[in-house]
């Protein structure tokens, strides 16, 4: 029989403090349900920030409304908890005002693809230099369990008691076609991979989109559970070429068996670059 080592709280705290990631955490404890996949995302962001040694003073976390959008309150950075679906335009404004800020936008699947769907293409095509981390649990958690744009057909929720009849969206294909310059997928049940992905997303210059599959342990007992996702999620093929847009689209098609990793990455001028260019042109005319 395997006897576990006794765990001393002081030792654990010391270990966490040594890791440095606590300095990115606010004193407020997350309000998510025990077991929620969002804890590992938040942990991953803190770790990635530590590794990148981000300056908190010049970092802003922006969110909309939803379980995921509570995120900024838990971070020791500047934060803007804005309106349902509107995190991206708010973040765009922040970035237009100050290029030097690192802007991390978080949101859930409802916030992003239902009410906020109109803003994603424009943030992506403009290549606003922000990181967009999408917490996808396939359900509305904050309002206690309604169907979302990524819920699977047949899913029973409080608003679809007989089953969901709507086809779920494929966010990866959408973001690829919108022109996002960095697109990847991660899974809350694979925290190390998730942390690496977050680090790469923040490091990318331009609009980076990280889709994180994350179970809602309270309102989804049948669909995207840890058990189900553990069985389905697999890494992208080793030979996937992230500079190949067609390959990325091909791999993104398979939504039933999600693959994690970087689908696509490319470099092109950001919105800030473009605006600076406009200013230069204007200055030469004036």
């Amino acid at each position: 029989m395997n006897v576990r080592e006794p765990l001393y709280l002081e030792d654990k705290l010391e270990e966490i403090e040594r890791s440095g990631k606590l300095s990115y955490r606010s004193q407020k404890l997350p309000t998510w349900c025990p077991g929620c996949g969002y804890f590992s995302i938040e942990e991953g962001v803190s770790k990635a920030m530590t590794r990148l040694a981000l300056d908190q003073t010049n970092t802003v976390c922006v969110s909309g409304i939803g379980c995921a959008s509570r995120f900024p309150f838990f971070m020791n950075t500047y934060g803007f908890h804005s309106l349902h679906g509107r995190a991206l335009p708010v973040a765009t404004g922040i970035k237009v005002a100050n290029d030097d800020l690192t802007v991390i936008v978080v949101g859930g699947d409802g916030d992003a693809f239902a009410i906020g769907g109109a803003h994603i293409p424009h943030a992506a095509r403009r290549n606003v230099d922000i990181t967009y981390i999408l917490f996808d649990n396939g359900i509305y958690g904050l309002t206690k369990g309604q169907t979302s744009p990524t819920s699977i057909v047949g899913f029973k929720t409080t608003t679809t008691p007989y089953c969901n009849i709507d086809q779920p969206l494929n966010p990866l294909m959408m973001l690829l076609s919108y022109g996002a310059s960095w697109v990847a997928q991660a899974y809350a049940g694979e925290p190390h991979h998730l942390t690496r992905m977050i680090e790469a997303a923040i490091a990318h210059r331009g609009f980076s989109y990280l889709h994180v599959l994350s179970p809602c342990v309270t309102f989804d007992k049948t669909s995207n559970t840890y058990q189900n996702l553990n069985m389905k999620v697999r890494p992208l093929p080793d030979d996937h070429d992230a500079s190949d847009f067609s390959a990325a689209m091909t791999e993104a098609q398979n939504n039933a068996r999600p693959q994690i990793g970087v689908y696509f990455t490319s470099q092109r001028p950001t919105l800030g670059d473009g605006l600076n260019d406009v200013a230069k042109r204007a200055a030469t005319i004036a």
């Binding site: 922006v62 309106l83 765009t92 404004g93 237009v96 109109a118």
Partner: peptide
């Protein structure tokens, strides 16, 4: 911007950023 909502959202973002 893409609509009036994003116009004022970005304005608020920029105002927030100083």
């Amino acid at each position: 911007t893409e609509d009036e909502i994003s116009a004022i959202a970005a304005t608020i973002g920029a105002g927030y950023a100083g």
